[in-house]
Simulated scan of single mutants.
Amino acid sequence: MRVSWARLGAAHEGLLPLLDAVERRRHDTIVDPATRDRFLLGCALSRLRLGERLDVPPADVPLRRECPHCGGPHGKPRLAVPSPYAFSVTHSGGLVGVAVCRGAEVGLDLEEADAPLDVDAAARTALAAPELTALYARPSAGRQAAFLRVWTRKEAVLKALGVGLRVPLRELRVSAPEEPPAVLSWPRQLTARPGVGMADLLVDGTHPASVAVTGARGVDVTCDDGTAALAAYVP
């Protein structure tokens, strides 16, 4: 599996022709410039990496963004044609990531290590009781880093399963940050509980990220920097 990272500075108008009509409309309605650039980079990097595997021009990669619940164009992006490839997009602050996997569903999550965060409030929402107890057993200075590691693991798993945050995070329990990533208990809403393999990543030596793959025990990840490819892209 390949994970590509890009930085916000790689966004430029030359990437706009890569977007299809649905993506372009969504892009043009985003008011905040940084959010708009993150969306553009996620679309463009996905298309570049999938185009390489499908052997088609990036702009011709057939993507679908239909929400399975309301039919709106904001669901998890997927290939619109049968393909062995699945992918996942994440973004936080000045970073965007895309994971592409063959033969399994994949989820990728990234968080900024130094972003302002109310750890207490977030932990009460996201952590199971044993996880919360373990978090507060740590020195206060290390709690945000520990929480973000657990959070990225949970987000990656739920993205891989395609359920997002529609199930209680507190019922999805994962291993402690210092331990190899693993799911310890599942939310009761998930009647189908496939094996999930995970890997922890660290972007720029600082920002925690996690990737999860369904039907796997171990995850072999190759990471690369997609910033240069995006910055140099000419349609």
Rank of each mutant, 00 (worst) to 15 (best):
S88L: 06
G197K: 06
V234C: 15
H91T: 03
E105N: 14
A126G: 05
H12F: 00
T152Y: 03
G72V: 07
A11V: 01
R143A: 09
R2F: 14
A229P: 05
L230P: 00
V106P: 12
A34R: 15
V167L: 02
L50A: 09
G94S: 10
A192G: 13
A115K: 11
A115R: 13
R64G: 12
V174E: 03
E131W: 11
E52W: 04
F39T: 03
V211H: 06
A6N: 04
Q189H: 13
L41A: 02
A99T: 01
A137K: 13
L135P: 00
E179H: 11
M198S: 06
D109E: 07
A229S: 15
C43F: 04
A99Y: 07
E52D: 13
V213N: 12
A113D: 10
L148Y: 09
D204Y: 06
R78Q: 15
M1A: 10
R53L: 11
P82H: 09
C43K: 08
G94D: 14
W151E: 01
L169M: 14
C101H: 15
Y136A: 13
L8E: 06
T125D: 15
A80W: 05
P139F: 04
R47G: 03
V163P: 00
L54W: 07
A113S: 11
G142L: 04
C223Q: 14
D20K: 05
R24G: 07
H91N: 06
L50M: 11
A134F: 01
T222K: 15
A137D: 14
P194I: 08
P116T: 00
V157M: 00
A10P: 03
T125M: 13
A209L: 01
H12W: 00
T191E: 15
D118C: 08
A11M: 02
P33G: 05
T206V: 14
P235T: 00
E171W: 09
A34Y: 11
L202M: 03
D37H: 08
G94E: 10
D37M: 03
T133K: 07
A104Y: 05
E131C: 09
E112S: 12
H27F: 12
L201F: 09
Y85W: 15
A115N: 06
D118K: 05
V234S: 15
S4D: 09
L19I: 01
